[in-house]
Each structure stands twice: as structure tokens, then as C-alpha cells.
């Protein structure tokens, strides 16, 4: 991300109220629409806007070996396997190639922080709206200030 976005992120993170509002605003959008689990390191744009953290095993590089017939979840047989959904939707959007990306382990320090601010700060992968896989280096490794 750019210098400007980094400045925005560090400004918002300096003030608890701004920081909190970013989290709340993000939750209002993402919770009802995507079933956001508040991991703070959003990969929605890589996974056809279907959140992999909704998987009972929270697999970021799925699916596990237990998907039932017709793509139902091993743990909750009445739900679809999240990775089955991601695959179907990615195919429809012509973005299946992006599923080849290896996703690094979740940084648990970012849980319940704003993924938008984390993205602006360069802590997590930027939103990737293209159809093809793009490799990006993360610039910042330190966590956001304490909540």
C-alpha cells in the first residue's frame, strides 16, 4: 500500500475512538453479509468473497478431507462446506486460479482489529480484485497497538 494509506492507518490507530469506529463499521458490513469471524486479516477478495474462517477447523488452505457428498460439511452435515462454496463461486467468477495461493498462518494478534486499517498499514495482503493470482510482499510485521 502507499505512503498515504499508511499515514491514514497510523492516524486512526493513534486514537482509540477512531480505531474502535473502524472496527465497528467493518463489523456492520462484514458480519451480516460474509459471516465475518473478526480475524483481522481478511482474505475475502482471494476466496470469492466467502470467508474461510467460517470453516469449523478455520482452514485457510482448504478443503479438509472430510467434505461429504454434494459438498456438505463433515462437522455440520446440514451446512455446505465453505471450501466447496469458495470453489464453486470462484469458478463462476473465473477466479479459480487464485485458489492456488498459499495463505500464511493467521496472526492471532490481529484478531478483533480492523482488517481495513491493517490493510492500509501494510500488515496484511491488500484486497485483490483481479482474476489472476498476484504475489505481494507484506511490508509491516509489527502488530497494531493494544486494544
Amino acid at each position: 500500500m502507499s505512503k498515504l494509506s499508511e499515514a491514514i492507518a497510523s492516524f486512526c490507530e493513534k486514537y482509540a475512538l477512531l480505531n474502535k469506529s473502524a472496527v465497528v463499521a467493518e463489523n456492520i458490513v462484514k458480519k451480516p453479509v460474509f459471516g465475518c469471524q473478526d480475524c483481522g486479516q481478511c482474505v475475502l477478495s482471494h476466496d470469492a468473497f466467502t470467508c474461510p474462517m467460517r470453516c469449523p477447523k478455520q482452514i485457510r488452505n482448504g478443503p479438509c478431507g472430510g467434505t461429504r457428498e454434494k459438498g456438505f460439511c463433515e462437522v455440520y452435515p446440514d451446512r455446505r462446506c465453505i471450501w466447496w462454496l469458495i470453489n464453486e463461486r470462484s469458478k463462476k467468477m473465473g477466479r479459480q486460479g487464485k485458489l492456488r495461493k498459499y495463505h500464511i498462518p493467521v496472526d492471532r494478534r490481529l484478531e478483533r482489529t480492523s482488517a481495513w486499517l491493517n490493510m492500509f498499514a501494510g500488515r496484511i495482503l491488500p484486497m485483490d480484485l483481479g482474476k489472476e493470482l498476484k504475489e505481494v510482499e507484506l511490508i509491516k510485521k509489527d502488530p497494531p497497538p493494544m486494544r
Binding site: 478443503p63 478431507g65 467434505t67 470453489n87 492456488r100 498459499y102
Partner: peptide, 21 residues
Amino acid sequence: AANPFAEPLDLRIIRLGKKIR
């Protein structure tokens, strides 16, 4: 591990590639 028998087959091949890389 790999499961050749569960759906979705195409994604399982992609995931196998991920494991190799």
C-alpha cells in the same frame, strides 16, 4: 494427505499442488 474421493475434485488437485509447493 490427499483424499481422491471427496468433492470438489478440481480444488483437491489445486490443494495437492499447494502441499507440494
